[in-house]
């Protein structure tokens, strides 16, 4: 067992865990933040996406030992205080979710995309979002919501 200080959503959480434990399980089981979802455990579906220093990572396939001491982690709960991040607002406006399970990961991938490319084209959205599976089939509304958020972020 190793000790880790995880800075998640601007709060430091002290945990003890095996160094191989994926960040996902530390966030869900040890820290108790449940907004980050388990989908595949292999980095294939994106349900577990969180931001590590602003970049999207698949937390199910990212070991605690790789996180680094000064890294900042953002989960869906930390994206905004009142649920009013422009991407969250766009998601609500377009009523993107169906079952909703994949949407935390989708939203964080979208936030990362808009962080690096504030006005993405459809093709750029496809490329950035292709790692996030939605089984209900909300892809088109996700795309519309990203365009909407892109405008409001300007």
């Amino acid at each position: 067992m190793e000790k880790y200080s995880l800075r998640i959503n601007n709060k430091v959480h002290e945990i003890s865990a095996e160094s191989e434990m994926p960040l996902l399980w530390a966030i869900r089981d040890l820290v108790g933040l449940k907004g980050t979802k388990f989908g595949c455990g292999q980095g294939l579906c994106g349900a577990c996406t969180v931001l590590l220093d602003g970049s999207p990572i698949r937390s199910c396939s990212f070991q605690l030992s790789e996180v680094g001491d000064n890294a900042t982690i953002t989960t869906i709960e930390g994206l905004s205080d009142k649920g009013d991040h422009p991407v969250q607002q766009a998601w609500i406006k377009h009523v993107v979710p169906q079952c909703g399970y994949c949407q935390s990961g989708q939203i964080l991938s979208a936030v990362a995309l808009l962080g690096s490319n504030p006005t993405p084209s459809d093709e750029q959205i496809d490329t950035a979002m292709n790692g996030n599976i939605c089984r209900c089939g909300t892809y088109n509304r996700i795309k519309e919501a990203i365009h909407t958020a892109s405008i409001s972020l300007k």
Binding site: R28, G32, L33, K34, G35, T36, K37, F38, T75, I76, E77, L79, S80, G83, Q88, W91, I92, V95, V96, P97, G100, Y101, Q103, S104, I107
Partner: peptide, 21 residues
Amino acid sequence: VPIYDAKDIAIGKAVFGADVD
């Protein structure tokens, strides 16, 4: 009519099966 849970989902507060502790 927008779904009742849209905001909870967008902010990560919606409770799915594995989220009950």
